[in-house]
Design a protein around this nucleic acid. Structure first.
Ligand SMILES: NC(=O)c1ccc[n+]([C@@H]2O[C@H](COP(=O)([O-])OP(=O)(O)OC[C@H]3O[C@@H](n4cnc5c(N)ncnc54)[C@H](O)[C@@H]3O)[C@@H](O)[C@H]2O)c1
Ligand SMILES: NC(=O)c1ccc[n+]([C@@H]2O[C@H](COP(=O)([O-])OP(=O)(O)OC[C@H]3O[C@@H](n4cnc5c(N)ncnc54)[C@H](O)[C@@H]3O)[C@@H](O)[C@H]2O)c1
Lengths: 251, 251
DNA sequence: AGGAGCTTGTGAACGTGAGAACAAAATCGG
DNA sequence: CCGATTTTGTTCTCACGTTCACAAGCTCCT
């Protein structure tokens, strides 16, 4: 769309190299769908095909792709390999990003053992933990190292992405250390809201929240008529005991 | 201006017991923040306090809470315990929901070992796997059982939520089996788009996608002026080799 | 009692995103 | 060479979500 020829007086100031956030979040899904098609030996796909594979509707997919440029051919569709490359380039996964994982407990172990990151644009360069009994343990090809080495590792390997899988308590401290060391993107698994300075991106993954969202809808399905059971406005001290639902900050 | 649409007589359809999806997704965050405040012995909190604890702005928080009812006191704030109970009730986590986990590999083990679900409204009633060498293994208080027992377990324990942590390949089959057995909410960790019939809710957690979203922004930060390196429109066969970035469907 | 000072709840403006619809471009058959 | 057919890229409109701003309502102090 940014063909040099058209100087559009149009209002929305398109393609100032800025892609809507909602679209950015879907590009990885398209990338995966394209890879699947490619692996099946399919060379060309229409927006309809792609949309089905990605689980979205085709108008949305076409609009999303139009932010990257005009990479399709009218009457034909998209060249799978070519589009895959363009999306990978736009996302920035044509070369690997160095990642450190902090907190090698249950979840950290699972991530460390996961082979899927390497094929998707990421390279885990270090597994860090503060627990001395864990340091030195081998996981696959890697060895758990002391969290104190963080700064050296970040500097040596140009690490820009950090993954936090420690308990909630130390998470903010770990986060601060990561940021101070130069990490500018953080993926947080601990159930706390982390605060970071401007310029640092943070995303969270929270399984309890996902389950609770499902629970809300589940309650709607089954409870249609069973809701009025609970009083709408019990006295301030007159509500049932609620042991500790919602989860605290502890590990 | 977008001033049009003078044909909207009724306000915004006064909440027919329907809470906006974006709000539903934030309620669990508020619930957690309230629990943290409660654990700190704080009995009352203003929308500003709560908003800070939850990492949102206070206007949004107040609007979100207003969908549940008028549970605050002007000039004072919100009673922490009372509001916590109201949100828990709205989400539906005042009593536990039965959950099964299918695919007890790296990730399944981590989830099985996680103690946080019990305190947040969920009870894991079974760990299922198709691999006979895994069946019978003890994990904490539980034992891995054969996937074939799914139907019995769902029926016996009134399971409505299923978690899929199998490789991508079998995920759709597992999903179909879950749905057929009566599960109506699914949390999927496998990197595939699952299709489910109407009435079944599905949510996905995809770590590679989260990392790729971070990578996109990361590239923006560092690449400001380094982008023009790559040609905008290379010949269809003239692009660099892209080994397999984007990830396939394999495990 | 009455006013000062807070804080909620909400109406309205604004911004972003989704989807329907269609004109523009490409292929293909005759 | 032309018209039928296919499918993209884009425009338009509507729905949803966020933020501002402020009147309504509560408490406390004098
Ligand atoms: N395991 C799950 O399935 C699961 C599910 C949802 C959320 N979570 C969250 O993910 C996080 C990790 O969970 P887990 O089950 O792996 O916990 P875990 O207790 O098994 O592991 C935490 C690890 O972090 C390390 N650690 C603690 N403080 C540290 C510090 N200051 N610096 C570096 N390392 C430190 C500990 O030594 C430990 O190895 C927790 O916040 C948990 O709430 C886990
Ligand atoms: N481990 C991670 O950190 C991680 C990260 C991102 C995504 N994932 C995704 O999560 C999923 C699980 O990852 P993992 O590392 O635990 O894999 P894994 O291979 O360790 O475990 C998969 C388990 O599923 C079981 N299984 C296979 N087919 C089954 C079937 N038909 N019915 C029941 N059980 C079956 C296997 O026996 C195995 O125990 C994968 O889809 C992976 O892509 C994992």
């Amino acid at each position: 769309m940014t063909r040099a020829s058209s100087r559009r007086p149009g209002p929305p100031t398109r393609t100032e190299r800025g892609i809507p956030e909602a679209t950015v979040a879907r590009l990885p899904v398209y990338l995966r769908a394209l890879t699947a098609l490619s692996d099946s030996g399919i060379a060309t796909a229409s927006s309809e095909d792609l949309a089905t594979a990605a689980g979205v509707n085709s108008a949305k997919l076409r609009k999303d792709l139009s932010y990257l440029g005009s990479y399709g051919t009218r009457g034909v569709g998209y060249d799978v390999e070519y589009l895959r490359y363009q999306i990978a380039r736009e996302i920035g996964v044509t070369q690997d990003w160095a990642v450190v994982i902090v907190g090698i407990g249950n979840l950290g172990h699972a991530l460390a053992n996961y082979s899927g990151f390497g094929t998707r644009g990421f390279r885990i360069v270090a597994l860090l933990d503060a627990d001395p009994t864990l340091v030195g343990e081998r996981i696959g090809e890697m060895e758990v190292r002391d969290f104190a080495e963080l700064e050296d590792i970040v500097k040596a390997d140009r690490v820009s992405i950090g993954v936090i899988t420690t308990p909630a308590g130390p998470a903010q401290d770990v986060c601060d250390r990561l940021v101070a060391a130069g990490v500018t993107s953080i993926l947080n698994f601990a159930p706390v809201v982390l605060s970071v300075p401007d310029g640092v991106d943070i995303r969270k993954v929270d399984l309890s929240i996902e389950l609770q969202i499902l629970a809300y809808h589940e309650q709607r399905k089954s409870g249609e008529a069973a809701l009025p059971q609970v009083p709408e406005l019990p006295a301030l001290n007159g509500m049932p005991d609620l042991p500790s639902v919602g989860g605290g900050v502890g590990a």
